[in-house]
Simulated assay, not measured.
Amino acid sequence: MAPNIGQLTERPTEIHSGQIRVRGLVRRFGDRAVLEGIDLDIAPGEFVALLGRSGSGKSTLLRALAGLDHDVTGSGSATVPEKRAVVFQDSRLLPWARVLDNVTLGLSGADAAERGRAVLSEVGLAGRERSWPNALSGGEQQRAALARSLVREPELLLADEPFGALDALTRIRMHRLLRELCARHRPAVLLVTHDVDEAITLADRVLVLDGGTIAVNREIDLPVPRSHRDPRFIDHRDALLAALGVTEDDSENSNG
């Protein structure tokens, strides 16, 4: 059962099938407002990436939609699907449970193991059902985490920098896998990331969170797969980096 997020709003939170609608969401930590009246809609099956500087409230918004910030006070309203899943930067696999048991944790029904094996096959881990998590590479652990989230067929997948700890080559492979899985399962996705190229590569739409509000809402109208050398990709990158306050000199210094 997905966590109840009724505690997150002063007005009742509604849970509907397939809808993501946020209005006037405010989140405060003490006297500091991290989110200042967020309005957000995500269509069923839409992939949205959320960018922002460190401390801008990206993870706070994601945790609000997931129902994980019960200690935070605030106001506003959110309409979210009941069937939600979260993927974090670390896989959060239980080390004392084998891979299949991690994937099917909390599932009931005679077909739970069969569903687990099917989704493990989808993420390229067929035959690893009896492995212990510490026998998997970092990329394989994140594949198992994806399998665990998708086995429940969520209508909303919330991903908090799920590839941030992976090496560059593994990240490219995980990007391809995530796009394929989302095309197959069709959840709405909210991906929190610091990586502008990752956001453009994966998302239908990219948001920039700044000053507690959504400052940029940019459609990414590029064919898939997307080339970083495409002039339109470069235009999107330049515009988003500018919105994040990154200058051309900053980019050159980071590459040098």
Rank of each mutant, 00 (worst) to 15 (best):
Ser121Met: 09
Phe163Cys: 06
Glu155Ser: 11
Ser137Lys: 12
Arg186Met: 05
Leu191Ser: 05
Leu125Ile: 08
Arg148Asn: 15
Thr193Ala: 07
Glu198Asp: 04
Val119Arg: 11
Arg171Gln: 01
Arg117Asn: 07
Asp195Asn: 10
Arg179His: 03
Arg176Ile: 01
Gly138Leu: 02
Arg186Val: 07
His175Tyr: 02
Phe163Ser: 05
Pro154Gln: 09
Arg176Trp: 01
His175Glu: 03
Asp197His: 04
Glu140Ala: 04
Leu125Lys: 02
Leu169Glu: 13
Met174Thr: 08
Thr193Cys: 05
Arg184Gln: 11
Ala118Glu: 07
Leu169Ile: 13
Asp197Arg: 09
Arg117Lys: 12
Trp132Tyr: 15
Ala159Lys: 14
Leu156Asn: 13
Glu180Tyr: 03
Pro162Asn: 15
Gly139Trp: 04
Ala145Gly: 13
Gly138Ser: 02
Leu136His: 11
Pro154Lys: 09
Ala168Gly: 05
Arg176Gln: 06
Glu153Lys: 09
Arg152Val: 10
Cys182Thr: 09
Arg152Cys: 06
Arg117Thr: 09
Ala144Arg: 06
Arg152Thr: 08
Leu178Phe: 02
Gly138Gln: 04
Val192Met: 01
Glu129Thr: 04
Arg186Glu: 09
Leu158Val: 12
Pro187Val: 00
Ala147Met: 03
Leu181His: 06
Arg143Glu: 01
Gly138Ala: 02
His194Gln: 06
Ile172Leu: 15
Val189Lys: 13
Glu198Tyr: 04
